[in-house]
Design a protein around this nucleic acid. Structure first.
Lengths: 135, 135
DNA sequence: ATAAACCCTGTACCAACTACGGGTTCAAGG
DNA sequence: CCTTGAACCCGTAGTTGGTACAGGGTTTAT
């Protein structure tokens, strides 16, 4: 199939597909006599893998690692699980982090919504450090 | 104070301070005869403001907007509140998104931890699309 | 044969920094 | 006064994960 078809089937735009090839996440496919890329079912599977892993927050570097493990087979499952757990930990840490941001922002707008304040409490919180323990 | 001192007092590295000046988030300070930057208390306050806003997830563009409103005074509070609310919404959306990622990852590693599976269930989920509805 | 649709490469751009190289200035000690 | 070493200067390039052109060449359908 052409790159346009692969794009349509995966929801991944053409430029990104070529980008993945450039950085070694997708293999260089064969070409037509005129130089157009030709993809097969394996390419489709691999690109879908990349998309799903990215959607779960894996970096492209981690995706490369997962793909290498998938190519190896044998003894890879434990390592894959380790990577997935690490990713899960990171996602959870990020959620905690955002939860703290949410709390501070929520408090800020709540103080503001009370109305009848001479100075803006949000700007004051930012200028004078209402809460240093964020970030 | 020197840029090094400002850096120490804010926890913001020197390159970033210069970067903020370049993009107009921090004002260009006066210089010594030799060209070294000299900062005062107002610079310190402003940089702390920027750092706190960034820690809450505001983009630099939003920070510029907040600073412009802070400089204006008068009639700015409602607008500041609007920006803070928008940011709060974004943070919550991101938390929801990550929560979905967490769910999928959690299920993946849970299936793996059960053991006694011939093929790696994590790789299979990624290759064959255990859950399309993510991202 | 020709036009439309598609594809090619290369480069530049986005956020929000970070890092580096090569040169200058400042403050302190001798 | 001179030297030394830390601190500072500027400009540029790299990072991550793409996106968006420009200016061409190829394929496909009529």
């Amino acid at each position: 199939m052409t790159i346009g078809e692969l794009s349509k089937r995966t929801g991944c735009i053409i430029e990104t597909i070529r980008y993945y090839e450039r950085i070694g996440v997708m293999p260089a496919p064969p070409r037509t006599a005129g130089g157009h890329r030709i993809y097969d079912r394996d390419h489709l599977k691999r690109l879908n893998f990349v998309r799903r892993a990215r959607a779960l927050g894996f970096t492209l570097d981690q995706v490369r690692g997962l793909l290498a493990l998938a190519d190896e087979r044998e003894t890879s499952c434990a390592e894959v699980e380790r990577l997935a757990r690490a990713q899960l930990d990171q996602v959870r840490a990020r959620i905690d982090d955002l939860g703290r941001m949410e709390g501070v922002l929520d408090e800020m707008v709540a103080r503001c919504a009370g109305g009848s304040v001479p100075e803006c409490p949000i700007l004051e919180a930012l200028f004078d450090g209402g809460d240093e323990g964020v970030g």
